[in-house]
C-alpha cells in the first residue's frame, strides 16, 4: 500500500493530483490511501479522507510500503522511524501552498538520509515513486535470496534522539530544575 499524506494544516492538491494521475495510469489506484486535508478538488481515483487522528496516521504508516507526502519534518520522520521509504514534494510559497519556502530547504537537508527522496516539481513525483518501489522490490528480492547487501535496505531512523543534544539539554535542565 502507498500512503499519501499532506500534513494536518493545509491541503496540497498538486501532490495529491500527481499521485492520483500516476496511480490511475499504472493501475495502482486501489493500492493507494490519501489524507488530503480540506481539499476543494479531492482525487478522482484513489481512496482518500480529509484528516486522520494520530493513531490512524500511525496505523497507515505501519501498513504502508511507501509514504508519499509533503516535505514536512513530521511526515519524513514518521516514515523513516517506521523503516519506510518516503517520497516528498515541497510546498511552494509562490503557489500559495505554504507561508514560506522552508520545505524546499527541508528537501536539501534530508537528501542524504537513506530512504528519502524529494522534489519541488510535481512532474518529478511519478519517477521518484517508481524508483522507490523499484528499490523496495530489490530489497525484497535480496531478502528472499538470503542476501542482505542492498544498501537501500538500511532505511530507518531510531525512534528517539541520540547524540550531543541530550547531554547539552540534560546539563541545562539539571541546573535549572534542582
Amino acid at each position: 500500500m502507498i500512503f499519501v499524506t499532506v500534513g494536518s494544516q493545509l491541503p496540497f492538491d498538486r501532490l495529491v493530483h500527481a499521485v492520483d494521475a500516476w496511480a490511475h495510469a499504472t493501475g495502482r489506484a486501489s493500492d493507494v490511501l490519501a489524507q488530503v486535508s480540506s481539499s476543494d478538488a479531492p482525487p478522482q481515483h484513489i481512496e482518500w479522507q480529509e484528516e486522520m487522528q494520530p493513531s490512524e496516521f500511525n496505523a497507515a504508516v505501519e501498513k504502508a510500503d511507501l509514504i508519499v507526502g509533503h516535505a514536512g519534518t513530521g511526515t519524513i520522520m514518521a516514515a523513516l522511524c517506521a523503516g519506510k521509504p518516503v517520497v516528498v514534494l515541497a510546498r511552494r510559497v509562490g503557489l500559495q501552498e505554504t507561508r514560506n519556502d522552508h520545505q524546499v530547504a527541508t528537501i536539501e537537508r534530508f537528501r542524504d538520509l537513506q530512504g528519502f527522496s524529494g522534489t519541488t516539481e510535481a512532474e518529478g513525483i511519478p519517477a521518484l515513486i517508481e524508483e522507490a518501489l523499484g528499490n523496495l522490490a530489490e530489497v525484497q528480492a535480496g531478502t528472499a535470496a538470503g542476501g542482505g547487501s542492498n544498501p537501500r535496505a538500511g532505511v530507518g531512523l531510531s525512534p528517539y534522539a541520540t547524540g550531543p543534544i541530550l547531554e547539552r539539554l540534560r546539563g541545562f535542565m539539571d541546573g535549572a530544575l534542582s
Partner: peptide
C-alpha cells in the same frame, strides 16, 4: 505536526 514529532524524539 513536525514540531511535536521533534519534541517527542526527546
Amino acid at each position: 505536526g513536525g514540531h511535536w514529532a521533534e519534541l517527542v524524539r526527546l
